[in-house]
Design a protein around this nucleic acid. Structure first.
Lengths: 340, 340
DNA sequence: TTGTAAGCGTTATCAT
DNA sequence: ATGATAACGCTTACAA
C-alpha cells in the first residue's frame, strides 16, 4: 500500500542490492538455470524488500513471450458465444496468462485486422471464437502461432477445433420429437453456410430418415440464428399451408421467435405445436413454456479451450476434448394432437 | 495473402525501404513531429507493402505507455454487463488501444487480484464494470491510474462513474403502470445492497407517492436480479394473499421469472397482471408476451466509457455523458381488470 | 525537418 | 554456477 511514485525497481537495482549480476537475478526470476541457494535467497529477499515487479514489456521484448492469449470474438451478442468468452476468461484466471480481446463482428476483413492487432501485441496463442477469418487465413495463421477454433467446426483443422457434434445433437433433438409421435416436423435453420447450421440440418434429416419419415422440403425454412428469423420462419410455414406439429429450431433465439409468432396466431405451445431449441441459454428455462433444448455448455467449452491452448503453447500433447451436448427436456414438447 | 514466415518487420526495415531514418518512421507512426509529405508517403507505402505492425512491447518499454485498457468484468453472465463489455471492445476497436480483460466474479478479493494483474501489465487505464473493489480500494486506485466505473453508481466518485439514472428510470416504469390505472403494484427488487437496486426501489416509491398511492411493504419482495428470484417473488406474493395487478421487476431476468411463475398458476399476462422489466435484453422482445421494459443501452454505455477513459488518459476534459434509459412499451402491460 | 545515438528492463549467448 | 554483453524494437533528446 505504499504510494511512492519513485522510479520502478528493476533487476539492476535488485542485482546491486543482492550483490549479484543482473543475469543471476533473471535466473532466479525464471528458474532457468541453477543458482546457489544463498544467492537465490539474497535475490528473493531483495525483491521482496524492494517490492519488485518485473516489467512485462521488457520481458516480452527480450523473450518474445507475452503471457497473453488473443481472443477473437464475434460481437453478435449471441449468448452462446458470450458464454464461451466468459469461459475463456475463467479458464485463464488462475494461470499466468491474460486474455486480450478483439472483435471480428462476423466480418472476415475485420477478423483479419483483429488477428493482426493481436499478433502485433505478441500474443502467445490465439483462440478464435465462432470462426471468421477465411480458411486460407487460418492456414497461414496456424503455422505461425498456436491457435484454437472454438464453438464451431472447420473441416480443415480437425485437431484445432473445439466444438460439439452438431449433427448428433440435432439428431437427438429431432428424435425426441419423433419419439413423442411427431411426424410433421419443421426445421428452421441457422445461417445456411455456417458449419454448425449445416451439421444441424444433417442431423435433422438423418433422424427423419432413420424413422422412415420423408423429408418435406417445404417444412424447412432457412433462417439465420436470430429471433426474427424464427418469427419469419413460422409466418412462412403458415403461409405455405403445410401442416406441422413440431418445430426444431437451429438455436434458442430462433425458437423464441418461432414461439412468439405462434403466440400471435393463437397457436398453443406445446399443445398444438412442440418446439425444440438449441443452446440452452439462460432464458430457455424462464420462457413460457420453458423450452426443451440442446444444452451446449459454452463456459465449459471456453474453459477447456483455454486449457488446451496452454498445453499447445507449452508443447504438451494437445488432447482435444470432445465436448458433448445433451438434450434438456422441459415443457415446450409433448405428443402431437391436431397440429396446425 | 503473403505467407512468408520471416522475421517480423520492424521500423528499421521500413526505414531502409523508405530511405529514411528510424526516427522518421517513428514520427509518422506517432504523429509527433512534422514530416515532409513525400517522406511520410514513402514510409506509409513501405508500411503497407511490408505489412508492418509496430511491436507493442518495444513501444511500451520505450514510452511507458501500454496502449492497453484493463477491463474488470463480473462473470455473472448478466446480459447487461456482457453488453457493456462488448461495447468497450467496440469502442476501442478503432483506436490504438486494446482491452485486457480480467474477471472479478463479484468478489472484492478476486477483483483486487484482477486489478493487480492488470496494473502489472501496465494498463494505461481501468474500466471497472459493475463495481467490485471496495470504495477504499477504489480510492487508492483512482489516484494512481485513470479509472472509470461503468454500469453502476458509486457515490464517492460521481465524476468517475458512468451509469443511467436508475431512480428516474424506475420512476417512469412505475408511472407507466400507474397511468394505465394500476394501483396495486408489486416490486421485485434486485440485490438489496446494490446501488442500482436501491435506486430502482427509490424510483418505484417516489412514483407511488407522487400518485398518492400508499406503499404497501408487503408488495415489495427482495430479489437478487436473477430469474429464480422472479419466480420466488411471485410465489411469495401469492402466498401472502395480497392482491396486485402489476409487477415492476428490477430487471428482465426477474421479469421472466415472474412471468413464468404466473404462467404456472394460470394467471394471464397482461390481462390479469401487467409486468414491466428493466434492461431490454435481446430476449425481452421475443418472450410471450413481449416485455415492456426499460431500455438500458449496455453497448452504448461501453462505447462511451471507452471514449471517455481515453480522453482522461490523454488529459482532455473528461466530460462524462449522462446516459439515459427509456421506457419501451410492448405487450406485457395493459390497464388492470380483476387482478389477482 | 531530419538523422544519430542513447536508453527502456529483460532475456539470451557467450565466456569463464 | 556466474557474469559481461549483445540483442529485442521503439521512443526521444540532442544535433545538424
Amino acid at each position: 500500500m505504499d504510494s511512492s511514485v519513485k522510479k520502478n525497481v528493476t533487476i539492476t537495482d535488485i542485482a546491486a542490492h543482492a550483490n549479484v549480476s543482473k543475469s543471476t537475478v533473471s535466473r532466479v526470476l525464471n528458474d532457468t538455470t541453477p543458482v546457489n541457494e544463498d544467492k537465490r535467497a539474497a535475490v528473493l529477499a531483495a525483491m521482496k524488500e524492494m517490492n519488485f515487479e518485473p516489467n512485462i514489456f521488457a520481458r516480452g521484448l527480450a523473450s518474445g513471450q507475452s503471457y497473453t492469449i488473443g481472443v477473437v470474438t464475434q460481437n453478435l451478442g449471441s449468448p452462446f458465444y458470450d458464454s464461451i468468452a466468459q469461459g475463456v476468461i475463467a479458464g485463464l484466471a488462475k494461470t499466468a496468462y491474460s486474455p486480450l480481446f478483439a472483435d471480428a463482428q462476423w466480418q472476415p476483413e475485420v477478423g483479419k485486422a483483429a488477428v493482426k492487432t493481436l499478433i502485433g501485441r505478441m500474443v502467445d496463442g490465439l483462440i478464435i471464437v465462432g470462426t471468421c477469418p477465411t480458411p486460407d487465413d487460418l492456414e497461414e495463421l496456424n503455422q505461425n502461432i498456436p491457435m484454437l477454433l472454438v464453438g464451431t467446426q472447420v473441416k480443415q483443422w480437425p485437431d484445432r477445433c473445439m466444438f460439439i457434434d452438431n449433427e448428433q445433437a440435432a439428431f437427438e433433438a429431432t428424435q425426441h420429437l419423433i419419439e413423442l409421435g411427431h411426424k410433421k416436423i419443421s426445421h428452421i435453420t441457422g445461417v445456411p453456410t455456417h458449419e454448425d447450421s449445416i451439421g444441424r440440418v444433417k442431423g435433422y434429416r438423418r433422424a427423419l430418415k432413420e424413422a422412415n419419415i420423408d423429408v418435406d422440403e417445404d417444412l424447412i425454412y432457412e433462417g439465420n440464428f436470430d429471433g426474427e428469423s424464427g418469427v419469419a420462419g413460422v409466418e412462412t410455414l403458415l403461409k405455405r399451408k403445410k401442416s406441422f406439429t413440431a418445430i426444431f429450431a437451429a438455436n434458442d433465439a430462433t425458437a423464441f421467435g418461432a414461439r412468439l409468432a405462434l403466440y400471435r396466431q393463437g397457436i398453443r405451445v406445446p399443445e398444438d405445436v412442440s418446439i425444440v431449441g438449441f443452446d440452452d441459454q439462460t432464458e430457455a428455462a424462464l420462457v413460457t413454456p420453458p423450452l426443451t433444448t440442446i444444452q451446449q455448455p459454452g463456459d465449459e467449452i471456453g474453459i477447456a479451450a483455454a486449457e488446451t491452448l496452454l498445453k499447445i503453447i507449452n508443447k504438451q500433447e494437445p488432447e482435444i476434448q470432445k465436448l458433448t451436448a445433451k438434450l434438456v427436456v422441459r415443457d415446450s414438447t409433448c405428443p402431437p394432437s391436431s397440429g396446425v
